[in-house]
Design a protein around this nucleic acid. Structure first.
Length: 553
RNA sequence: UGGGUCGUCGCCAAGCGGUAAGGCACGGGGUUUUGAUCUCCGCAUACCAAGGUUCGAAUCCUUGCGACCCAGCCA
């Protein structure tokens, strides 16, 4: 049984950092940051970036900040910010500093004034549509705006009045003056400030102009003395702009932007727009629905932070666009849960069995191990009596080949208890099996029967002692590997992604299940108590099934 | 068609001129009071293709081919 998380591999970013350290590039300092925009909940894709940034900092004795990229108040809010802090902490990381791009608005403004003074930025009156038209295309160069050569003094005046609120939203925009003919479209005089009369969740109504990402991000990194600014591949084309801005200004430092491929996980989506749609249109029950790929959803499903961290390490880090199979995530979840989840017995679809030769009214307390491979986790007492409940699936009237559970006239081991034999099948008027009459072998507690082998082992609960529970079985939310490829991703939603079993029975010890514990319901999967459990009502979520190596032929 | 990036097993991924690591998946054997776990074995004469350089190439060069990203006053 492995107790260690996957050993770190020499991915290209670790190599760069190692090399920089050797060259004493930043005076031996390593500083990273995780810069989410507070416009949605964190998801499994963010986990990759979080583990990378915080991981690199930890490994090399550096620092990692949490910085909210909150420059677009139209989409951002406090709820998202709070959820992000909660989720980063839950994943197991502690930030060195907590910052907001909005903390830098005043400095950002001053730097913009400086760019104007240097003749490297101008106030443009062109509309958004016109700017698009002037920008040219992928193959044709753009053409200069009529305002491109506006005198510096006039730009200064206009920009000050933009800030003062003298103009309507969208009336003017501040643009960097770079190169309208650049083959890189991002360099064709990108907008760096826009007028937006929107209340900002942190700065209130102090500003009516807000800086754009490209301009803000590099300066924020520089102000925080970040050494390695790690981001995803789509920002590769923005790196020249990142460097251009910092080259024009006397910032405290000039961080190095390095891009890596974002996570793509089969059968899931991570587009914030689509995730939001799933929530608002009620295709799922909120951001923390266990089917959601959000950290909140994974947490509620019972996935552990350790499993996610291990997953992020296992999938590697490169610049290749790649798709990770669900099996990898499931493996990581099972590996952690197999080692740490307490075992228990639950019967999802009960079938009543009566032990004819067991004394009426008798109850035995049987000691059952909480974890077969880890005796130090102790044992629990499980009540055994004459009337028991087993899983419907564990009895077959017409067993398939190699079936090793209960059949009429056959024997099976009750986990942690006795070997029983089915003597009679009781059906109702419709021909449905409603009860099994069985006998038990008193000489099989803790030992194998003499002279015969009993292969099957099944779980059970005592009818009068068991606790009722609702059990929610989750499956992948989508039925195709890449829902984004569909004309409408909603059409790819798996209709069976949630099965609610309302009348399950779990062993008595689970009546006071710990909300933070994970359990393995033997032979069926890993489960955890859901927050919907209240006053005596038990609700469990299935985190993941057990691997099923049984190949029926 | 301009620019940027990437092509090593079904899926990830090491490899950095000296003769293809590892993980997941898959197939088979063993142990097992969970058809779980654990364990053992198997799984690329081959690195997008074709040329070239070299004693030697996945690694260097050339030319192709394929995939992804970019034309928000989003991030």
């Amino acid at each position: 049984m492995s107790t260690n998380e996957t050993l770190p591999s020499a991915n290209f970013i670790r190599q760069i950092v190692t090399h920089d350290l050797k060259e004493n590039k930043h005076n031996g300092r390593v500083a990273t940051r995780f810069p989410p925009e507070p416009n949605g909940y964190l998801h499994i894709g963010h986990a990759k970036s979080i583990c990378l940034n915080f991981g690199i900092a930890a490994e090399f004795g550096g620092t990692c900040n949490l910085r909210f990229d909150d420059t677009n108040p139209e989409k951002e809010n406090i709820e998202y910010m709070e959820s992000i802090e909660r989720d980063v902490r839950w994943l197991g990381f502690t930030w060195s500093g907590l910052y907001h791009a909005s903390d830098y608005f005043e400095q950002l403004y001053d730097y913009a004034v400086q760019l104007i003074q240097q003749g490297q930025a101008y106030v443009d009156t062109l509309s958004a549509d016109e700017i698009r038209a002037y920008r040219g295309t992928l193959t044709e160069p753009g053409k200069p705006s009529p305002d491109r050569n506006r005198p510096i003094a006039e730009n200064l005046d206009l920009f000050a009045r933009m800030r003062a609120g003298e103009f309507a939203d969208g009336q003017y925009v501040l643009r960097a003056k770079i190169d309208m003919a650049s083959p890189n479209i991002n360099m064709r005089d990108p907008a760096i400030y826009r007028i937006r009369r929107v209340h900002h969740h942190r700065t209130g109504d102090a500003w009516c102009i807000y800086p754009m990402y490209d301009y803000t991000h590099c300066i924020s990194d520089a102000l925080e003395d970040i050494t390695h600014s790690l981001c995803t591949l789509e920002f590769e084309d923005h790196r020249p702009l990142y460097d251009w801005v910092l080259d024009q200004l006397q910032t405290p430092s000039h961080p190095q932007q390095i891009e890596f491929a974002r996570l793509q996980l089969e059968y899931t989506i991570v587009s914030k727009r689509k995730l939001n749609q799933l929530v608002t249109e009620k295709h799922v029950h909120g951001w923390d629905d266990p089917r959601m790929p959000t950290l909140a959803g994974l947490r509620r499903a019972g996935v552990t932070p350790k499993a996610i961290r291990d997953f992020c390490e296992r999938i590697g880090l490169t610049k290749q666009n790649s798709w990770i199979e669900m099996g990898v995530l499931e493996y990581c979840i099972r590996e952690d849960l197999n080692e740490n989840a307490l075992r228990a017995m639950a019967v999802l679809q009960p079938l009543r069995i009566v032990l004819d030769n067991y004394p009426d009214g008798q109850t035995e307390l049987l000691d059952v191990s909480n974890h077969p491979q880890r005796p130090e986790l102790g044992k629990r007492s499980v009540p055994f009596s004459k009337v028991l409940l087993i899983e419907q699936d564990d009895f077959a009237e017409l067993p398939p080949p190699k079936y090793k559970r209960l059949v009429e006239g056959g024997e099976v081991r009750l986990r942690g208890a006795y070997v029983i034999k089915c003597t009679e099948v009781i059906k109702n008027a419709d021909g449905q099996i409603i009860e099994l009459r069985c006998s038990y072998d008193p000489d099989t507690l803790g030992k194998n029967p003499e002279g015969r082998k009993v292969k099957g082992v099944i779980q059970w609960v005592s009818e009068i002692h068991a606790a009722a529970a609702e059990i929610r079985l989750y499956d992948r939310l989508f039925s195709v590997p890449n829902p984004d490829n569909e004309a409408n991703f909603l059409d790819a939603i798996n209709k069976d992604s949630l099965t609610v079993l309302e009348d399950c029975r779990v062993e008595a010890s689970l009546a006071d299940a710990n909300p933070d514990s994970r359990y393995q319901f033997e032979r069926t999967g890993y489960f955890c108590l859901d927050k919907d459990s209240a006053n005596g009502k038990l609700v469990f979520n299935r985190t993941v099934t057990l691997r099923d190596g049984w190949v029926k032929d």
